[in-house]
Design a protein around this nucleic acid. Structure first.
Lengths: 300, 300
DNA sequence: CGGTGCGTTCGGCATTGCCGAACGGTTGCC
DNA sequence: GGCAACCGTTCGGCAATGCCGAACGCACCG
């Protein structure tokens, strides 16, 4: 086992979990074997182990595999560990109260924005909790803030995927998981969890970004200019760039050393949050206040 | 690799994740090595791999390890896959509206009750979302329902832990993770996530169950009698058995074949949900209605 | 300024688990 | 209604894999 190398079976197990998570469908051994370019027998051994530890469940009737409940439990444990989240709980509630909008806290993860906290808009039920969702970076205020500051700029930072879903080893660069690769939290609900959340991997690389609405910034140049503006003003917004009719506003959260570790923002209907394409400055001040408060809190 | 066997490194990786999830503290290589009774070098290899796939993050300053964001993402994907949850979303909202209490949906997992959905009590903010939490089975209405029906009774069912945190291989049956093994979702908040959620593993085995309040059923005999009553009446409740001042009421959810796959219930203050130690029958009927509705929905 | 802890590296050996082919069951298409 | 394709699973043999324990450099504490 050389120095920079990794353990084969563990990495393969992770690949399986990623594939199972990439769509709401259950997958069979053969299906997985084809997607990963490995023999069926090999995958069966890993799957047996994953079932044994509870990371994967097998449908008793069909024999196919799906994610297991242990992963939900481990994932929620992550929320306890995450200092960014635990320290900002109260501030997020306060921001929701003042702005009367839903509040989101996110951190850079695998080319997207991982939602680590989500406060519903007051007095508005029927919302779907989006914690754990991976939002596209270039079409959200949270993502723009995170990209504008640390993650890019200093090398080796957290923004690009550490290990993508494995490009199928063999020379068959297909999408690997058939139709419906989307990971829509709460299937069948109008949801922000959009296809190809981490779209583009390296946003500034090929110059082509996934479009979610006609107003999504799809050119790398436009995005670069936008990020320059964000750096200048200290906060970011998106107007109907991810979902039609929705606006988001966000500001950076920094740690004691001054590096941006996350972002906090609000998201809501365009009628309430913007006038003539410009964000409501009152709301903006609320968001920036909250971000500064959390930053101060993290520095203690 | 024999037939019933599993892949060593994958199982060890799972053990590491479990340990990291068992407390809010970050752990070092040496610490993990001691807890699992393995050489440091071995663990380092696995950890390097887990970091590479994003399941674990390493603190740049201290070098210690904590859970990674990918786990949160995978865990939330589990919620999409979980049919029980996706099918009951609307019914849970309706139940919350009628009862004006917080609604919980749970399923049997590793000796406890895994919370797969949680609707806040209407018009009451400052609640902590408990999705992903593992509740103790013998001290909650959800757990009593799940235990009373399928999981026990028919052999090989889902209730006992498939692979506990690894009892340290070597002949040293210590708790394996020092003090603070508790997994309290949202650390520092008065939370239902209690120590030893899966307390007892095999509840009817040794006859001693973890006590959370003076009213917790701690004897296996008492529990067995209670479960008999639950089977007779078709629903369960707990009055201040997990948290002082709180009552829960739950009913079983079955699938097309009639096996109990989960439970739905409400939880709230004793003043509102019970009179003289007996649950409010109006609320009980709401809960049972919702459970039947979801059961019908699952059979389609 | 030693000592003790940490996270990390490295080479050798044998254990581990990868692989491909074969098996029985089910599904679905002719 | 029968045949074929495909499923998930089993198994044995070979060698690649990755486990182990000792050594390294560093940081902190006494």
């Amino acid at each position: 086992m050389g120095v920079g190398e990794t353990i084969q079976s563990v990495e393969r197990a992770a690949g399986i979990l990623r594939l199972l998570a990439s769509g709401p469908r259950e997958l069979g051994v053969a299906e997985l074997a084809r997607a990963m370019g490995l023999p069926k027998g090999t995958l069966h051994g890993i799957l047996r182990t994953l079932v044994h530890v509870g990371f994967v469940e097998q449908d008793a009737a069909t024999g196919r595999y799906r994610l297991g409940g242990t992963l939900l439990h481990l994932g929620s444990s992550y929320l306890d560990v995450n200092v960014l989240r635990t320290r900002s709980l109260n501030w997020a509630d306060a921001l929701a109260g003042r702005s009367r909008e839903s509040v989101w806290i996110g951190t850079a993860h695998e080319g997207g924005v991982l939602v680590v906290h989500h406060v519903f808009r007051p007095d508005d039920s029927m919302q779907v909790l989006q914690v754990g969702t991976l939002l596209p970076a270039h079409a959200t205020a949270l993502g723009k803030v995170l990209m504008a500051y640390d993650p890019y700029g200093d090398p080796g930072a957290a923004f690009h995927a550490p290990s993508a879903p494995e490009p199928a080893a063999a020379p068959a660069p297909e999408p690997a998981a058939g139709p419906g690769t989307a990971s829509a939290t709460a299937a069948g609900t109008p949801s922000l969890a959009a296809l190809g959340a981490a779209a583009g991997g390296e946003p500034a690389a090929e110059g082509v970004l996934a479009a979610f609405t006609p107003r999504t910034l799809t050119s790398a140049d436009d995005l670069a200019k936008e990020l320059e503006l964000v750096r200048g003003r200290g906060w970011a917004y998106d107007v109907e760039e991810l979902v039609e009719g929705e606006v988001s506003i966000a500001a950076p959260i920094r740690d004691a050393r001054g590096v941006t570790v996350g972002a906090i923002g609000v998201r809501g209907a365009v009628e309430r949050l913007a006038e003539a394409g410009e964000p409501n400055i009152t709301i903006v001040s609320y968001v920036r206040d909250a971000a500064r408060a959390i930053t101060r809190d993290l520095s203690r």
